[in-house]
Simulated scan of single mutants.
Amino acid sequence: MMNTSELTLKPQDLTESRLQLHYAVQFIAAVGKALVPPKPDESHVSLGWNPQLNYFVSEIIPAAKPFQVALDLVTLTSLILDRKGNQIAEFPLDQKTLAEGINWLKGEINKLGAEAQKIALIDYPSDFPDSPLARGAVFDATQEPQRRELMGYYADTYLLLQDILATTQGSSPVHTWPHHFDMATLITLPGMHDGEPMTIGVGFSPGDTSYNEPYWYVTPWPYPETTNLPALEGGGFWHTENWVGAVLKAFEIKDKKVQIRDFLNSAVKAAQFLLQSVDRLD
């Protein structure tokens, strides 16, 4: 796990690179939406993580030559890999537009025998972050240190979430969601509340409208009352504006490799306690 005491970048230094990556992963999401069989939880459009390569990846796409689409975060390169992770084709996104990227992807996928004509960028609601990239601007690969740092956060989070999956019943596979660009697992608890499942989202955001910096979160659903929320370990705190969840901001982490794990473990326990209290009231 990264040594956060060695970080020299400030939160605002990551914003532009975060947006560039957020738009770059839309190629993977577009392929998933078009060519992966739909799933009830919409995870067919989500991004997987390859921990050996530290790439975002799609599912394996069935075709005459099965493949998956990937993104190298550090070099900002769109890739097509075979089912073993070997590279078939690459397209450096630097100084290229979204349209050029999707056209390259469709051309390469057509060669592999899949229905490339179905692929189109996903049209999200108004809360998708704005960027000049949406209006024809080109990608810019100059900020490699920032992208490398963001890659490290995702790589570390993937390992932390795998630990949670191994020890927590009801945990979903780890997905990164292209709409908000957060990597997460969803823990489903026994019982219902008002006809809805009780869940705990555990994940990482590289920054958004709530916090313009990377942070980890644990969100119980339904949202609990905000009075007498349990104390959290690792320097975490409770966010209560518009949504309720435990938060640990990356740039407040000291030189403690266990701090994120302590936060997540304590926040999951706190969320379980809060939801069990709701269940007892039903």
Rank of each mutant, 00 (worst) to 15 (best):
N3S: 12
T4D: 06
E6W: 06
T8I: 10
P11G: 12
Q12Y: 07
L14T: 02
L14M: 08
E16D: 09
S17P: 04
S17F: 06
L19H: 07
A24S: 13
F27P: 00
A29C: 13
G32W: 03
K33S: 15
P38W: 08
P40F: 07
P40E: 14
E42K: 09
S43E: 06
S43G: 04
V45R: 15
P51R: 09
F56H: 11
E59Y: 04
I60N: 11
I60K: 13
P62Y: 10
A63T: 03
A63Q: 08
K65P: 00
D72V: 03
V74A: 13
T75M: 09
G85M: 07
A89R: 14
A89I: 06
A89K: 14
L93A: 12
Q95F: 08
Q95V: 07
N103Y: 03
N103D: 14
K106N: 03
G107A: 10
E108V: 11
I109Y: 04
L112H: 08
L112M: 10
G113W: 09
G113Q: 10
E115F: 03
Q117L: 13
I122C: 07
I122Y: 07
D127W: 13
F128H: 12
R135M: 12
A137W: 04
V138S: 12
D140E: 05
D140K: 14
E144W: 04
Y153H: 10
A155Y: 02
T157A: 12
L160N: 02
D163M: 05
T168S: 09
V174W: 02
P178N: 13
F181I: 05
M183A: 12
T185W: 01
G191N: 06
G201V: 03
V202M: 11
S205A: 15
Y211H: 13
Y211S: 11
Y215D: 03
W216G: 07
W221V: 00
E225P: 00
G236T: 02
F237D: 05
W238A: 09
N242F: 05
A246S: 04
D255H: 03
D255G: 04
K257G: 07
I260P: 00
F263W: 04
S266I: 02
Q272N: 06
L274Q: 10
S277G: 09
D282I: 11
